[in-house]
Design a protein around this nucleic acid. Structure first.
Length: 127
DNA sequence: CCTTTGACTCACT
DNA sequence: CAGTGAGCCAAAG
């Protein structure tokens, strides 16, 4: 299990320079592993992390992930498949375009066939 | 240290 | 069926 690799990255993971925040680490680790052309939801990641009720934290972590640029935050949307976080990108249309580049159809700020493109970390990563 | 907020979700009205 | 409220946890101010 390539967990060691994630540990290396720990040094630059947090915006505040705090490397003890295991929560953020996990969120970033999962987000990085989202396959191209697939998407997941904040809630799914939250469940995977064990804090299923608090998907907000995932979104908050994504905010920090924005600085790292190695995190495909555009592949993470809310449970409806709507690009709720698009406004947090450089441009509101950036997220949409990134998704379209990955063959993901986006209509009205919502991912088409979201359930079909859905990537469940709890299953794919099989903890 | 206490208050506010935040890219969510579920549930009740 | 749609809207509003509350719950959840952690970080930033």
């Amino acid at each position: 299990m390539p967990t060691k690799k994630s540990t290396e990255k720990l040094k630059a993971v947090l915006p505040s320079g705090k490397k003890d925040s295991n929560f953020f680490e996990q969120v970033y680790d999962v987000a990085r592993q989202i396959p191209r052309g697939r998407v997941t939801s904040y809630g799914a990641i939250a469940v995977f992390l064990g804090t299923k009720m608090s998907a907000r934290m995932v979104g908050w972590a994504m905010n920090g992930a924005h600085t790292l640029k190695d995190i495909p935050a555009h592949r993470v949307v809310n449970r409806n498949g709507m690009l709720s976080g698009k406004m947090h990108f450089a441009t509101p249309t950036r997220m949409e375009e990134l998704l379209k580049k990955e063959k993901i159809k986006v209509v009205d700020d919502t991912i088409v066939d979201f359930e079909k493109k859905f990537w469940n970390p709890a299953i794919e990563l099989t903890i």
